[in-house]
Amino acid sequence: MQEATTRFATENGQKYLTQLCKHFAHKIDVAQTGDRGELMFSCGTGFLEADADGLHIRVRSPDDANLADTKSVVEDHLLRFAFRENTGPLQWQATG
């Protein structure tokens, strides 16, 4: 399994976590409990955790190609929802 993490600094981490989970729940399996969410895509899984300073994102996929797809779909939607924050692309770090 391949994994990567990133952090989106914002005062609206919980808002974006909820928005992402609600959006994707129409298309894929999603689990959300409080400040944590799990997005189960066919290409991999996204794990979200909100706190007062932002949204921590970890993605896991079986290989590099699927990892890239999982990162892309989570990042694209988050940046679309957070368009007022004028942030650039997320800075992902490989784990493991």
Results as ranks from 00 to 15, higher is better:
residue 24 F to N: 03
residue 72 S to F: 12
residue 81 F to V: 02
residue 40 M to C: 12
residue 49 E to G: 10
residue 46 G to Y: 03
residue 63 D to Y: 01
residue 57 I to P: 01
residue 2 Q to A: 09
residue 35 D to K: 13
residue 69 D to H: 10
residue 5 T to R: 08
residue 4 A to C: 04
residue 6 T to Q: 11
residue 43 C to V: 00
residue 60 R to G: 01
residue 67 L to N: 04
residue 78 L to G: 00
residue 7 R to E: 11
residue 33 T to M: 10
residue 3 E to H: 11
residue 41 F to M: 02
residue 75 E to M: 13
residue 89 P to L: 11
residue 94 A to H: 14
residue 75 E to C: 14
residue 30 V to C: 13
residue 26 H to W: 08
residue 83 F to K: 13
residue 76 D to K: 15
residue 61 S to C: 13
residue 77 H to T: 01
residue 32 Q to L: 00
residue 48 L to F: 10
residue 24 F to V: 01
residue 24 F to W: 08
residue 49 E to W: 06
residue 3 E to G: 06
residue 96 G to M: 07
residue 79 L to M: 09
residue 92 W to A: 03
residue 96 G to V: 01
residue 75 E to S: 15
residue 94 A to R: 15
residue 93 Q to L: 11
residue 6 T to P: 05
residue 45 T to F: 01
residue 67 L to G: 02
residue 46 G to K: 01
residue 46 G to M: 05
residue 41 F to R: 01
residue 12 N to W: 07
residue 66 N to H: 12
residue 21 C to T: 02
residue 5 T to Q: 07
residue 69 D to Q: 15
residue 44 G to A: 04
residue 91 Q to D: 14
residue 80 R to G: 06
residue 73 V to W: 04
residue 58 R to H: 03
residue 87 T to A: 14
residue 80 R to D: 14
residue 66 N to T: 05
residue 40 M to A: 12
residue 87 T to D: 06
residue 87 T to P: 03
residue 28 I to S: 04
residue 43 C to D: 14
residue 21 C to L: 04
residue 63 D to V: 01
residue 69 D to E: 15
residue 23 H to G: 08
residue 91 Q to R: 06
residue 7 R to N: 11
residue 56 H to K: 15
residue 10 T to I: 09
residue 35 D to H: 13
residue 15 K to I: 12
residue 52 A to R: 13
residue 6 T to I: 04
residue 74 V to R: 01
residue 84 R to N: 06
residue 6 T to A: 15
residue 79 L to V: 03
residue 20 L to S: 00
residue 37 G to D: 09
residue 88 G to W: 03
residue 31 A to C: 06
residue 3 E to N: 12
residue 4 A to M: 05
residue 90 L to G: 03
residue 4 A to K: 01
residue 68 A to D: 08
residue 71 K to H: 07
residue 83 F to G: 10
residue 61 S to G: 12
residue 17 L to T: 02
residue 95 T to G: 15
residue 89 P to C: 08
residue 81 F to Y: 11
residue 13 G to T: 09
residue 59 V to D: 00
residue 76 D to M: 12
residue 63 D to F: 03
residue 36 R to S: 12
residue 19 Q to H: 07
residue 87 T to N: 10
residue 27 K to H: 15
residue 12 N to C: 09
residue 61 S to T: 02
residue 94 A to M: 14
residue 52 A to W: 06
residue 67 L to A: 04
residue 70 T to K: 06
residue 42 S to M: 07
residue 39 L to Q: 13
residue 33 T to K: 13
residue 29 D to T: 08
residue 26 H to M: 07
residue 92 W to C: 02
residue 23 H to P: 11
residue 27 K to L: 05
residue 66 N to A: 09
residue 17 L to A: 04
residue 86 N to C: 06
residue 51 D to P: 01
residue 8 F to P: 01
residue 69 D to A: 14
residue 84 R to Y: 08
residue 10 T to Y: 02
residue 29 D to G: 06
residue 71 K to N: 09
residue 57 I to H: 02
residue 2 Q to W: 12
